[in-house]
Amino acid sequence: MSNDDLDLAGKPKNEPLSPEGMAAEWATMPDMLVEEGEQDGGTDRLMSQDEIDTMLGFSVGGDDRDARNGIQAIVDSGSVAYERLPMLEIIFERLVRLLSTSLRNFFTDNVEVSLESIRSVRFGDYINSISLPAMLSVFKAEEWDNFGLITIESSLIYSVLDTMFGGKRGQPAPRVDGRPFTSIEINMLKRVIALILSDAEAAFKPLSPVRFTVDRIESNPRFVSISRPANAAIRVELKFDMEGRGGCLHLLLPYATIEPIRELLLESFMGEKLGRDAIWENHLATEVWQTDVAVTCVLHETQMPLKRVMKLEIGDTLMFDARPDSTVALRCGDFIVSEGRIGRVDDKIAVQVVSPLRRSKTTIAAFDSATSHLGSTS
C-alpha cells in the first residue's frame, strides 16, 4: 500500500472510522497542518480570533467610525457622516436653546435640555434598537415633501405625564408596564410633540423655512416605515432633565428628507453662499445716502418731424400742449422718479413733489437670481 492510499492519520482512506477515531483525527489535524507548513518553508497558519475580528471590523469596542476597519468599514462607507453637513449641528444647538425656554413655560417648571449626540445610522438598525414601550410620532416636512420621526422613551413619557398631572418634584415617575397608552396620555403627549416641532421649524427657518405637521402616532416600530431599512438617516438624541425626572428623545431625519436643503447644510455658516460682507454693505449704504444726484425738471416734451427741426430759425415759436396747472416730470438720467408742480419761493423757482417716488422693481433677490443665471449660461 502506497502513501497516497493513507490519510493524514496514517490509516487507509477507504477504511471507515469510528466516532472516537474521527474526533481524534479532527483534534490532531491543526497540529499536523502547522508542522507540514513549517517543513515546506511556507507561512500557512490558522488565524486567531483577534485577527478575525480585526478583518471583519468588530474588534473596536467603541462607536468611533474613524477607528473601524475591514468589512465593517466597507459596509459603513455607504452612509454619509453628518460631519459633512456643518449646519446641522448649528441648527440643533439652536433647537436646544429654543426648547429650554418653551418647555419651561409649558411645564411652569425647570427643564434642562441638552444635546447628547448626532449620529448617522441606518434606518433599519435604528428601528430594531428602539426599546419598548415608546411613543413614535411620524411628522411630515411639507416643503421638503418627506417624513421624519420623533421617538420618546418610556422614562421621558412617564416623567412628562407625571409633571403635567401635578406629580411631586424630585421623585422618579412611576412606570406602569404591560399596558398601552390611554387616549388622554396620547393627547397630552401630542401637545409636547407639537411644541417640539414648532421649535424645530424656528430652528430651520434662518436656513430654509419649513412646516412640520404630525402625521400619526404609533407605539409599534413596525408601523413607522418612513424609509427603507438600508437607507441612512440622521439621529439626534436630546436629553431632558426635570429635577430628577426625565429621559431621552430621538429626532430621526432620513437623508432623503433633508436632500432638498443639502446644499445649504454644506455651508460652514449661514449666508456663506451669498458671499456678502456686512461691514462693506453698511459702508456702501452710508456713502449712497450722501451722494449728490442731479434731478432734471422737464416741463413738457413734444415730437416733430426732422425736416421741421431743420427749418427752425431765430424767432420761431414752438407751441407746447401744457397748462399752467399741469404736472412736470422729475427725471434722474433717463428715469422718471416723481412728478411735481412749478411754483415760486421768494425769488426762486421751486417744484413741489405731488407723487411718491417710484421705487425700482429690481430687488436684491431678483438681481442675485439674474446674476446667477447669467453666470450659469456664460
Score class of each variant (00 low, 15 high):
residue 372 S to N: 10
residue 378 S to I: 13
residue 93 E to A: 02
residue 17 L to K: 15
residue 53 D to K: 14
residue 257 T to Q: 11
residue 158 Y to I: 05
residue 198 S to K: 13
residue 76 D to E: 15
residue 73 A to N: 01
residue 137 S to V: 15
residue 22 M to R: 14
residue 352 Q to W: 02
residue 144 W to V: 04
residue 11 K to R: 15
residue 332 C to F: 08
residue 334 D to K: 15
residue 139 F to V: 06
residue 47 M to N: 08
residue 76 D to W: 03
residue 236 V to S: 03
residue 239 K to V: 11
residue 61 G to P: 08
residue 34 V to S: 13
residue 193 I to T: 15
residue 99 L to D: 05
residue 319 M to A: 08
residue 148 G to Y: 03
residue 355 S to E: 15
residue 162 D to K: 05
residue 61 G to C: 04
residue 15 E to C: 03
residue 270 M to N: 10
residue 186 I to K: 10
residue 276 R to S: 14
residue 319 M to G: 09
residue 179 R to H: 08
residue 265 L to Q: 01
residue 62 G to I: 04
residue 45 R to K: 12
residue 331 R to F: 03
residue 79 S to Q: 03
residue 106 F to D: 06
residue 174 P to N: 04
residue 83 E to Y: 11
residue 345 V to W: 05
residue 197 L to T: 06
residue 277 D to M: 06
residue 140 K to S: 12
residue 5 D to M: 11
residue 212 F to A: 04
residue 152 I to F: 13
residue 75 V to Q: 09
residue 42 G to N: 14
residue 65 R to C: 00
residue 258 I to G: 07
residue 83 E to N: 12
residue 248 C to T: 10
residue 148 G to E: 05
residue 74 I to Q: 15
residue 119 R to G: 00
residue 105 N to E: 12
residue 34 V to Q: 08
residue 332 C to T: 09
residue 291 T to Y: 09
residue 373 H to S: 13
residue 18 S to P: 03
residue 210 V to H: 07
residue 342 I to V: 15
residue 148 G to I: 05
residue 202 A to H: 10
residue 211 R to V: 11
residue 300 H to R: 10
residue 4 D to Y: 07
residue 252 L to S: 05
residue 358 R to A: 08
residue 124 G to R: 00
residue 2 S to E: 15
residue 105 N to S: 12
residue 136 L to F: 05
residue 341 R to D: 03
residue 176 V to M: 10
residue 343 G to W: 00
residue 122 R to A: 01
residue 114 S to Q: 06
residue 255 Y to A: 09
residue 166 G to F: 01
residue 144 W to G: 12
residue 97 R to Y: 09
residue 14 N to C: 02
residue 132 L to P: 11
residue 11 K to W: 06
residue 336 I to F: 02
residue 233 A to N: 05
residue 29 M to R: 14
residue 259 E to D: 11
residue 247 G to L: 01
